[in-house]
Amino acid sequence: MSRNLAKLPSNDEVSVTVLVSVGQHPVTGRLRRADQDARALEMAMGLSDAEPRVIYAGPLNDSIEPALRGYLGMGVSELKVLRQSEQNDIVPALSAFLNATPSSVILCGSRAELGESSGLVPYQLADALGYTLVANVAVIEKVAASQAVVLQALPRGQRRRIEVALPAILAVDSASPVARQSAYAKATRGFINCVVSDTEEKDATNEWHYAPARKRPKRLKIIKATSARDRFKAAAAKAEGAGGQVLTSVTAEEGAAAILKVLKEEGVLKT
């Protein structure tokens, strides 16, 4: 648990910023703190005794405010808002703000629960700021002045230890520790501080190119199991790429040819 992580000595303090969004409950769709963003804040609060900076970019109204207060209820006293109109792209606002007031560790959820939910914000932001990005972070093991050690979540509970140079953006995975309870009194007393208000309509979606979704070829799933035990084994077993091959030290052309061959075999590429 990151909560029990040894706190850093104060001379080694790094500035931590958490980017949060508005989430929605999967069953009822009621607005709430977003699960992964709350986990990111939980992680940040375990990093040092200093309070992390919490930033939200997006629209602000009476139905959104209680959801944002969910983060304040976790024990931070202030939430900074970069107010944007509904359709604005939040990346320019975030990158401008973070450029002006940099932070060495920026934590955020991997994917928003509302809106396009493309999961691209961390990537676009890392690109705009020129920071390193680590996706699917499960645990932050150590943060020092210029470097952090994190565990990245891989499928089936596997973890990969990564050393990353700071500043970096760490996108938190759902495999990270659950966020602490949000306390009502802290939530109502915390401050929502609007630091930027850009309500000019700059509908980002105007520039988008829309295309009908293409039907993707579906991999046939042949269930051979006859008993519950077999089905369980099939579900739990590590998907070994049977018949695959590992190509090392081949030329780009040879590699590409091998990939094309597989794609044709699988029926992904026709002709």
Partner: peptide
């Protein structure tokens, strides 16, 4: 403990979140 500290033990927090959301 619940309102000021957010320290409802075990399944408490989850149940309260459910009550709020569902």
């Amino acid at each position: 403990l619940t309102l000021e500290r957010g320290q409802t033990p075990n399944k408490g927090a989850e149940v309260l979140e459910n009550l709020i959301a569902t």
